Simulated scan of single mutants.
Amino acid sequence: MEPVLRQAVALAHQNLEARTAQYLARLGQKVSCRRGCFACCYAWVVVGLAEAAYLREHLEAHLPDALARVEAEGPNRLRRIAQHKHRADFPTTYFLEAHPCPLLTSEGACAVHPHRPLACRGVLTNLEARYCAPG
């Protein structure tokens, strides 16, 4: 991955984190998300090419087993999106089917948390974890 592209993705991640922190501070809210709380890891996540390359670079260097899981799951997800992308209820249906992200570890943690995509960074709650569970 080109250094300038890697830097742009990292900067986008930092900017979202900073804006989210400012927003929550302004509201006086605290996020209840934590390790072991992973219902959001069953959602359909769309990742842009730059973030995908950024994530792949990290996986190749540090988590080859996780990369293998992503590559094995990829064709299944592409097939699903090709078949159902025009259904308005597809993201909800997918979530309720409870397909875990291939980067979710057996301990209930994100294997790439510091490198997770913007789509994942934007999912936060101040509710109890039970409210996030599929269904």
Rank of each mutant, 00 (worst) to 15 (best):
L104D: 01
C110R: 02
A61I: 06
A18W: 03
D65I: 00
R56Q: 14
C41Y: 06
N15D: 04
Q22P: 01
R35V: 12
L96E: 14
Y94R: 02
E97R: 15
N15P: 00
H58N: 02
A52V: 01
E128Y: 10
P91G: 05
W44V: 07
F95A: 14
A119I: 01
C120F: 04
A82S: 15
H62A: 05
R19V: 09
H62E: 11
A25Q: 12
T20K: 03
T93W: 14
P102W: 13
P117D: 01
Q83W: 13
V4D: 11
L49V: 11
C33T: 11
R77Y: 14
C41M: 07
T92H: 12
L16F: 07
Q7Y: 07
A119K: 02
Q29N: 08
A68Y: 06
L118G: 00
A21L: 03
L78I: 14
R116D: 00
R6D: 05
A111D: 05
E128L: 13
C40M: 03
A72Y: 09
E107I: 06
C40A: 08
A21E: 08
A72T: 14
L27E: 10
P64W: 04
P134Y: 15
G135S: 14
G48F: 02
G28E: 11
L59E: 03
E57C: 00
Y131M: 14
L104Q: 01
T92Y: 06
Q29S: 10
E73F: 10
P114V: 02
G48V: 00
H84M: 06
A72L: 13
T20D: 09
R6A: 08
Q7P: 00
A18Y: 04
N76W: 11
L127I: 05
I81K: 09
V45Y: 12
V112L: 00
S32T: 09
A129F: 10
F90H: 08
L49H: 07
I81H: 11
L63W: 01
L24T: 04
I81V: 13
Y42P: 04
R26E: 08
